[in-house]
Design a binder for these strands. Structure first.
Lengths: 244, 244
DNA sequence: CGCCTAGTTGAGGTAAGTCAATTCACGTGG
DNA sequence: CCACGTGAATTGACTTACCTCAACTAGGCG
């Protein structure tokens, strides 16, 4: 008997492993203990030593890394249902910072707690780790963006990817979606200067492909934009649960 | 009673999960069934639909993605003990190609076989998936290289990372190691043209920091090179097994 | 009303790309 | 032993995509 809406996390994990009622119960308990953070105050700072994992319930965050030169690179954006800082469990200290872009709501879990739960619920562990593996596919796609696509192509590609991800969790459509990112977020994610991002966005708008303005993205000509960006959503797609 | 040398894979997984004799036995069986591939003949081509996973026993391979424009981006290099194509299990078709750089020896495992073994040996599954997660840290570091480091810095950074990885598996030292990569491999990995890679290597050599020549890398001044590249091996490091 | 942040536009500089020769290292067959 | 072929590395000349610096505009908001 289903008496509440499925969380983004449940929907996400169910795509990888068919979870039992028990496992769902564990998940639900994990996902209690909510905290909120204001936009701009880091959940985790680079170099932090106490190992904590978060599950994002509401809002957007970015994972970034600061370089010695003072520049920063955003590795990925996360949206509700995503795990934050999972990899830091492997390391002595977090190798990257996590900054909320909007006000966010998260569940906090200590590393020890998570590992205990993983020991007792290996199937759940698999589901989470497979999901993490799919997230890696997105990082790979960013790598390709930055390595081999022009500024225009990679900007378009990132926007299309965000659109596809948001559509999957029911927060947007092919034609438009809300997007709290500033131009400097795009710049740090794309390895460009924000000034150049501005020019690129103008170009895309003037060419009638897409409009990024006032925290809203409008795709004016999806087909042309997707062709221009060489975008193929296959890497976001997944099969039915791989473990029954 | 230990009557054979530990494989690179065993050493790698043991760093994440303390494996039982049974689990080691399963691993050993998985790692039978050897095949060889010649340098240049892809193990997996981009778009391939039958899902196979490989464990690399000997040699170097690169995972790359081809773009519509004909350029390619190498996502990562793999060395013995690494899994190849694990993520393709999640997708309908492989989203990247895998090309041997040297002649290689691998164990081939079908997706079905691997998933069955994972179901029966959840701890083993965890070990493998955690290892995959650590590999993601390297992709992240490449992303940062390409996004925010200059050509010289990122070249130096990649070389230092390769040196550190090889040292971990006992195939090199801080001062020098064998490296079968051509300049065009570096170029495709770093998002540069091979002509520019050539100039950058010359610069690094003339500055007395490192020499890349005749399939051999010599680090002439480790401290200065590491400072120049902003290199910190922490992301390659790991704790004692996280699961007992 | 003034302040603050984000966005916009222009001018000029530079890192890295492209095109085109040339050299080098190496096999291989005559 | 030499002529030849082939793929990699090297170097030069020129082009360009993107960066930096600097100024200005547009909106929110106390």
């Amino acid at each position: 008997m289903k008496n509440r809406t499925e969380t983004a996390l449940e929907r996400k994990l169910a795509a990888f492993v068919a979870l039992s009622a028990d496992e769902l119960g564990v998940l639900h308990k994990l996902h209690g203990n909510r905290r909120t953070f204001r936009a701009g105050t880091d959940l985790v700072y680079q170099g932090q030593r106490d190992q904590t994992v978060f599950i994002l319930a509401k809002g957007w965050v970015s994972s970034y890394k600061l370089l010695a030169t003072g520049t920063r690179q955003i590795v990925d954006f996360q949206i509700p249902g995503d795990f934050l800082g999972l990899r830091s469990i492997l390391l002595h200290a977090s190798d990257h910072g996590i900054e909320p872009i909007t006000d966010v709501e998260v569940s906090e879990i200590s590393a020890k707690e998570l590992l205990d739960i993983f020991s007792e619920n290996p199937r759940l562990a698999s589901a989470v780790l497979w999901a993490a593996s799919r997230d890696e596919a997105m990082v790979v796609e960013h790598l390709i963006d930055i390595g081999r696509r022009s500024a225009g192509e990679r900007t378009a590609h990132l926007i299309l990817e965000l659109g596809a991800r948001l559509t999957l969790v029911g927060k947007g459509s092919r034609a438009e979606f809300d997007c709290p990112l500033k131009q400097h977020h795009l710049a740090d994610a794309l390895g460009l200067s924000s000034i150049h991002v501005n020019r690129v966005l103008r170009r895309l708008r003037e060419d009638g492909m897409m409009t990024f303005r006032n925290n809203r993205v409008t795709i004016d000509d999806y087909e042309r934009l997707a062709a221009f960006a060489d975008f193929d959503a296959a890497y976001l797609d997944h099969e039915r649960p791989i473990l029954r």
